[in-house]
Design a binder for these strands. Structure first.
Ligand code: ATP
Length: 996
DNA sequence: AAAATATCAGTTTTT
DNA sequence: CTGATATTTT
């Protein structure tokens, strides 16, 4: 079994997967296969006899959970993965609370309060007390308080010194908690906290658990750490995977320090690091590392590209946010059209710092008919019509939920206005009861107008009818309850009246249908998404289901991030993905755009942790496999002028970025992309006239973002056809799009040695040359280009910024009417999607290396990463170490730096192992340019034990003895940079261990 | 007091 | 584009 399981792993990964260690930490940079390794370890644990229902796997997002389940399923080949307790911390908590919550006094039918709920509750409290706090900020503070177990020193101090603002927040917090409790609501933090309570007081609940595995550990908070510890209490078998450099959830109280806590909790923890990046081109990796290395408080880890250098990333300046959107659209079309099928829309992602930045981009993609999808975001559940239905269901499920009651009692209008609602809430609060009971039981203190009274009872009638269905009809379904609501409130009429515009009305009706479809799915007992396996029975402990199908459905929806478009029509169509960087964590795409990289956006004006913002950019950049575009507009969407992000201005970055998108006609660009994507190099047989593109080059806008040489028509008059005038003059004429003479020879070579042969582009050559014009990032013209061996003559560079008067527009060149619709490429692009018949003789098992979101089932050929078997290094491992490449070294030095560099101080019993010894690179000759030396300072390849077997050559396995106070060099390094970032060893105790 | 109408600002990141 | 607020009408 293990043979197949371990075969698509490298040596370090294999060590990790099969490690007998009780506690194992895998720390490694992006794209090094952490998730892949974790997945394999789960399969390995199962293969070695553990029971699926006794393994807990916690991921960070639902998407990651689903993905992992699928991957494990593939490795196993049976259905055992269904039995795993696998999900986000929150959803796992819900499952435990549902079954065992009664042990700690949680009431039946509890509801998960989502963000919107929390916020409206807080708003109400603020209003009631005439406070001046900002609801959102307050919400965040309260959440932080709950996640950290206290306000923190600063707040406490301010409170003592009678700081009004802070005292108000404290008061809001108290009232907020009371409100949740009364309404039987648990917010996201409560889910975790209450689960900690449960497991602490009743450890039997998890007495069956044999192993706990955690993905993205750097983003766990203190409560989640505690939860992990408690879940693993029985066998204490823990595996965590993480990367401190990718910690981007500090704003949500994530604690990078948790790694130290782990070492303190389990002093025998084995730490393994992985140092080979299987995702990105060398150039992308180099640029990304350059960014993250700006963080001086960080300890460098080595991360080596396994791919060729590839195409240099792009840092593009655009005139405005609108133009940026337009440009992205054109670049996407260029990528898709000019790469002979290598890149489809599904291979492209646009990653944003803030979701709202998508506006202009969506406009242009829509205009050009480029299919896209927005991921993340709960936009669907926040639509009024959807929310209306869901809140009705909540009141039906739990009438004491004042919040839900107030939300919809006057929707549609029933003559119950703000004043009435407010006084009802206040009276209910005062009597420590709910509005529902108030109305049922009592004489009201509040004098209600006849109209209002009537309205409230009409509302309650609808609820009561539904509750009757709930208790009477055995066969009631969530969908039937929903239909009842829709009819009772005459939702269609209401929508028609409120949104008279036909289109608007129709789309809202669609949403109603969609939520109804979701309910029907939940009613289906076969549907795996809504029917978790019950938790395994544990001896001597009774499970007592606290949830009803309805409350379960509502809980699922509160925790949902996207409406999982039930394979709706057009689902199979490849689409461009638009996402926030946060939501893109752990994913990968062949082509990535990061627009809006201006100061104020990244780093964000409101962020108080600049380093986290930098890490965010790093995470975004490292999602890219083959092509990376970073861009910023000189004028943002609020029409304010901007400056490029400080992260991108250092002159040392100049070398790493080009100023405009690649020329796909240049010799190596397409083969390089193909190699990185492990696809066959396409044969491209079309001619320029057939291209429905305004230009083959990224030359429609000046590289410096100026608005000079504007096209005859302004952008908003444009209808999608090509007609930007400037700059394309003879480029297309000069050069055939793809030079077949150059294409042909590539093919044979790569059929045998794929990753190693594709001629390296001149990244390395340029590094050798060094004639850099350092006069500023944005506007400086560089005397060379990077993409290619040929130094492009300056004339042609110039040419691309200005179009001489009277020059024909592109549309004219293509012989098309100026405003005609853009057609899809009609012809003769022979796609690269044929089966590759001449597989190399030694091939690794296929790996699913496509992005989750990219099109599935695409029959493109996967080509193994390494076409030659891995041969253990023959040189003495102690002498092979990558060294920092950033210092002034000569060109020759840079070539292949593997010098042994001892650290300044070290005990004599430390040996220094390369975690990535030079690998035999068949077919590559020395003069063919080496791997781009990754600027790296791999101090973490230090092993703190004297005697090590040679089998650890590729592994940095470090027994980190985490005795507080003892700071051995080796142990510290073993932490791979975590400790430094955390400011040493504090005396932190998990909340549940702390004195009560 | 509630509804209808008008106007305006403002948008981090997420389970 | 939406949610909050201000103003007017019922
Ligand atoms: N041993 C290997 N050989 C070839 N490809 C690999 C290997 N290990 C991982 N990969 C590929 O590398 C890519 C990145 O893997 P994975 O997503 O597991 O990395 P990661 O370390 O979790 O990245 P991130 O930190 O960005 O989430 C995937 O496409 C995966 O298939």
């Amino acid at each position: 079994m293990s043979a197949t399981l371990l075969s698509n792993l490298n040596e370090s990964q294999r060590d990790a997967v099969s490690s007998p260690a009780q506690q194992l930490a895998i720390l490694a940079g992006p794209g090094s296969g952490k998730t892949h390794t974790l997945t394999s370890r789960v399969a390995w644990l199962l293969a070695s006899g553990l029971q699926a229902q006794n393994i807990i796997v916690a991921t960070f997002t639902k998407k990651a959970a689903k993905e992992m389940q699928e991957r494990i399923g593939k490795l196993l080949g049976d259905d055992r993965e269904q039995k795993l307790i696998l999900g986000t911390f929150h959803s796992i908590s819900v499952r435990y609370l549902r079954s065992y919550g009664y042990l700690i006094g949680i009431k039946k039918g509890f509801v998960v309060a989502d963000q919107h709920d929390s916020e409206t509750i807080i708003k109400r409290i603020i209003k009631k007390n005439n406070f001046m706090a900002d609801p959102k900020a307050t919400k965040n503070k309260i959440s932080g308080r709950k996640a950290k177990g206290g306000w923190g020193e600063k707040m406490e101090k301010a409170m003592k010194s009678n700081n009004k603002e802070v005292q108000q927040i404290d008061a809001i917090y108290t009232e907020y908690e009371a409100t949740l409790k009364r309404a039987n609501l648990l917010d996201f933090d409560d889910l975790l906290l209450r689960c900690v309570d449960l497991l602490r007081d009743h450890p039997q609940c998890v007495s069956n658990v044999e192993a706990v595995l955690i993905d993205e550990f750097q983003d766990t908070n203190l409560v989640q750490f505690d939860l992990m510890r408690l879940m693993a209490a029985s066998r204490k078998k823990v595996t965590i995977v993480g990367d401190p450099d990718q910690s981007i959830y500090g704003f949500r109280s994530a604690e990078v320090k948790n790694y130290l806590s782990l070492l303190r909790q389990y002093p025998d923890t084995i730490t393994i690091s992985l140092e080979e990046n299987y995702r990105s081109s060398g150039a992308i990796l180099a640029a990304s590392l350059k960014i993250i290395q700006q963080d001086t408080s960080r300890i460098n880890k080595s991360l080596l590209a396994t791919h060729s250098v590839g195409t240099r990333p792009v840092l593009r300046t655009l005139e405005s946010a609108e133009v940026e959107g337009d440009w992205i659209m054109h670049e996407i079309r260029r990528c898709v059209t000019l790469t002979g099928g290598l890149i489809t829309y599904g291979d492209v992602a646009i990653l944003l710092r803030s979701a709202y930045l998508s506006r202009h981009i969506e406009t242009y993609l829509g205009k050009a008919g480029v299919p896209y999808r927005m991921v993340g975001g709960r936009a669907f559940y926040d639509r009024v019509e959807v929310r209306l239905i869901l809140y009705y269901l909540r009141v039906i499920s739990n009438p004491t939920d004042n919040n839900a009651f107030a939300e919809v009692v006057n929707l549609p209008k029933r003559g119950v206005g703000d004043v009435t609602v407010k006084s009802l809430i206040e009276e209910a609060d005062a009597k420590r009861t709910s509005i529902w009971e108030l109305m049922e039981k009592g004489p009201l203190a509040t004098g209600l107008s006849a109209k209002a009274r009537n309205g409230v009872s009409r509302f309650m009638k609808i609820i009561k009818d539904a509750r009757k269905m709930l208790s009477d009809e055995e066969g009631h379904t969530i969908a039937s309850l929903m239909k009842h609501v829709i009819e009772a409130v005459e939702l269609e009429d209401y929508l028609k009246k409120t949104y008279p515009e036909e289109e608007d009305y129709q789309s809202r009706l669609e949403n109603v249908k969609e939520i109804l479809a979701l309910a029907e799915e939940a009613d289906d007992p076969e549907s795996p998404d809504y029917n978790d396996e019950p938790l395994p029975e544990v001896d001597g402990l009774e499970q007592n289901e606290l949830s009803t199908p309805l409350s379960n459905f509502l809980a699922k929806i509160s925790l949902a991030t996207d409406k999982r478009a039930k394979d709706a029509e057009g689902e199979d169509k490849p689409r461009v993905t638009i996402s926030t960087i946060h939501a893109a964590k752990g994913l990968e795409w062949p082509v990535v755009f990061i627009p809006g990289a201006y100061d104020g956006s990244i780093p964000n004006g409101r962020a108080d942790d600049t380093d986290e913002e930098r890490r965010l950019l790093y995470v975004g950049m490292t999602r890219a496999k083959a092509l990376l575009y970073v861009s910023y507009p000189l004028i943002d969407s609020r029409r304010e002028s901007t400056r490029p992000s400080n992260f991108l201005t250092p002159t040392s970055l100049l070398l790493h970025f080009g100023q405009k998108g690649p020329s796909f006609s240049k010799q190596n660009v397409i083969p390089d992309i193909a190699a990185i994507l492990r696809l066959e190099v396409p044969k491209i047989t079309f001619t320029p006239d057939e291209l429905p593109l305004p230009s083959q080059e990224d030359d429609l806008w000046p590289e410096d973002g100026t608005a000079k040489a504007r096209p005859p028509k302004t952008w908003d008059q444009w209808d999608g056809t090509a007609q930007y005038g400037e700059a394309r003059k003879s480029l297309a004429h000069d050069r055939p799009l793809i030079d077949k003479k150059n294409m042909e020879p590539w093919k044979p070579s790569y059929t045998t040695t794929m990753t190693t042969t594709p001629a390296f582009s001149t990244a390395a050559a340029v590094l050798r040359e060094q004639p850099v014009n350092l006069s500023g990032a944005g506007s400086a013209k560089r005397p060379y280009t990077f993409d290619d061996d040929e130094i492009v003559d300056k004339k042609s560079t110039k040419r691309s910024t200005k179009r001489p008067e009277g020059q024909p527009s592109l549309a004219a060149y293509f012989g098309k009417p100026q405003n005609s619709k853009v057609n899809e490429p009609t012809t003769a692009i022979t796609a690269a999607r044929q089966t590759h018949t001449t597989q190399p003789s030694v091939s690794l098992p296929r790996m699913n290396h496509r992005a989750t979101l990219s099109q599935r089932g695409n029959p493109r050929t996967a080509i193994p990463a390494h076409t030659a078997p891995y041969v253990p290094p023959t040189i003495c491992p102690t002498l092979s170490r990558h060294r920092i490449g950033g210092t002034a070294s000569t060109a020759t030095n840079r070539r292949n730096i593997r010098a042994f560099t001892p650290p300044e101080s070290n005990g004599s019993n430390y040996i220094f192992l390369s975690s990535s010894p030079p690998r035999p690179e068949p077919g590559r000759k020395e003069h063919e340019a080496p791997r781009l030396p990754m600027p790296s300072n791999s101090i973490n390849s230090i092993v703190a034990t004297a005697a090590r077997s040679a089998s650890l050559h590729t592994t940095t396995e470090d027994r980190a003895r985490a005795q507080p106070g003892r700071k051995s060099y080796g142990a510290r390094m073993g932490m791979g940079g975590w400790e430094k970032r955390m400011g040493g060893s504090g005396s932190w105790k998990p909340p549940s261990m702390a004195d009560k």
